[in-house]
C-alpha cells in the first residue's frame, strides 16, 4: 500500500459499499412503501418507517463522505463527472431533498391520515427514482463517454449518460436495494405474518436481481465493452463473481428456509461482492477509458493527510455506529421508539 491513490480509492469503495448496504436499503424501504399491498399494508408501512427513522440520516452521510473524498483526493475526476453528468446529478439531489423532507413531514403529520398518505407517496416515488439515477451515474462512469477537456464536455450533456447501459445499471441498482430492504425487513418485523409478507417480497425481488444482473451484463457488451471484457477476465474477477453467486444462492436458500438472520448477512455480502466486482473491472480507471486513478489523484502529501484524517475519523465513527446499531438493530425491535 505504498500508493496513497490506490489506498484512497479503496477507502472510497468501502464508503460506497456502506452507502449501498445501509443507505441503499433505506431507498428500498421506500419502494416497499410504494408497493405496500394487502390486508397488512398499514403495518407494513409502519414497520418500514420505524426501521428507517432512527438511522437514515446517519446512513446518508456515507454518500457525503464519498463525494467529499472524491473531490478532495481526485479533483479533476469530480470536476469532469459534475460537468458531464450535470443532469442526472441534479435529478439525484432533487430526489434526495424530496425523499428526506417528505419522510419527516409524513412522520409529523400524524393527525391527518390523508395528508400523511400524500407525503408518503412523494417519499415512495422519490425513493424509487433516486437509486435509478445513482445507478445511471455508475453506469455512465463505466461506459467511457465522460470526456471533459478544459471544462468542456466533448460528448455534450446527454450522450455521457443517456443510453441503454447506464439505464440498465440504474434499474439493476434499484432491484438490489429493493431486495436488500425486503431481506432486512424480515429480520425487523416481530410479527410472523409481516415476516412472511416480506419473505415473499424478498424472494421475488431476489429473482429480479438475478434477471437484472444478466440483462445488465449483456447490455455491457455494447454499452461498456471494457467492463464487459473485464468481467470475463479469468482472474481474480472470477473469484469475485463466484463469491457473488455463492452468496446470492445462500441468501435465497436461507429465505426459503426462514433463516432470516443468515439471509441478511448473505445478502449484504452479495451486494458487497457485486460492487467490488464492478470496481475491479473498472481498475485502474476512475473514469473508464479516460482518467486513471493515478491521473486524477492529488499530490501524495495531500492524499496521505486525507488518509490520516479518515483514519482518525474512523476511531470516532466506528464505536458510535456500533452503539447506534446496538440500540436499534440488534434484537430489541420490540421496544417502542415512541
Amino acid at each position: 500500500m505504498h500508493n496513497p491513490a490506490v489506498l484512497l480509492t479503496l477507502i472510497l469503495m468501502v464508503s460506497l459499499t456502506f452507502y449501498a448496504l445501509f443507505g441503499g436499503a433505506d431507498y428500498g424501504g421506500g419502494v416497499w412503501d410504494l408497493l405496500a399491498r394487502g390486508p397488512r399494508q398499514q403495518q407494513q408501512r409502519e414497520l418500514i418507517a420505524n426501521a428507517i427513522a432512527p438511522v437514515w440520516e446517519a446512513n446518508h452521510v456515507w454518500l457525503i463522505l464519498v463525494i467529499v473524498l472524491l473531490f478532495a483526493g481526485f479533483p479533476p475526476a469530480f470536476a469532469a463527472v459534475s460537468t458531464a453528468l450535470h443532469i442526472p446529478l441534479t435529478a439525484i439531489i432533487i430526489g434526495i431533498v424530496m425523499r428526506g423532507s417528505s419522510f419527516v413531514f409524513r412522520a409529523y403529520h400524524t393527525a391527518d391520515y390523508r395528508t400523511q398518505k400524500r407525503w408518503g407517496m412523494i417519499f415512495a416515488v422519490a425513493s424509487t427514482i433516486t437509486p435509478i439515477c445513482l445507478g445511471v451515474i455508475v453506469g455512465a462512469i463505466s461506459s467511457g463517454n465522460i470526456v471533459v477537456k478544459q471544462g468542456i464536455s466533448e460528448n455534450g450533456f446527454l450522450t455521457p449518460w443517456l443510453g441503454l447501459f447506464p439505464l440498465m445499471v440504474g434499474v439493476f441498482s434499484l432491484s438490489l436495494f429493493v431486495f436488500l430492504a425486503a431481506v432486512y425487513l424480515t429480520v425487523e418485523s416481530t410479527d410472523v405474518q409481516l415476516q412472511e409478507d416480506f419473505r415473499r417480497r424478498a424472494l421475488v425481488s431476489g429473482l429480479l436481481v438475478a434477471l437484472m444482473a444478466l440483462a445488465t451484463f449483456v447490455s455491457a457488451r455494447t454499452g461498456a465493452p471494457d467492463i464487459y471484457s473485464g468481467l470475463l477476465k479469468p482472474s481474480i474477477v472470477w473469484i469475485v463473481q463466484g463469491a457473488t453467486a455463492v452468496f446470492a444462492c445462500t441468501a435465497f436458500l436461507c429465505l426459503l428456509a426462514r433463516k432470516y438472520k443468515i439471509a441478511r448477512v448473505a445478502a449484504m455480502l452479495q451486494i458487497t461482492f457485486i460492487l467490488w466486482g464492478w470496481g475491479m473491472s473498472q481498475a485502474p480507471y476512475l473514469l473508464q477509458g479516460d482518467m486513471t486513478v493515478n491521473d486524477a489523484a492529488a499530490s501524495p502529501a495531500v492524499l496521505w493527510t486525507l488518509i490520516a484524517a479518515v483514519g482518525s475519523g474512523l476511531v470516532l465513527l466506528v464505536p458510535s455506529l456500533l452503539y447506534l446499531l446496538r440500540l436499534f438493530k440488534m434484537g430489541n425491535e420490540h421496544l417502542p421508539l415512541h
Partner: peptide
C-alpha cells in the same frame, strides 16, 4: 473551482463529514 481547489479545501470538508 473544485477541479483546481478541491485538494486544498478537501481536508476541512472531510473532517466535516465525520
Amino acid at each position: 473551482f473544485m477541479g483546481l481547489a478541491g485538494a486544498a479545501i478537501g481536508m476541512p470538508f472531510s473532517l466535516e463529514g465525520f
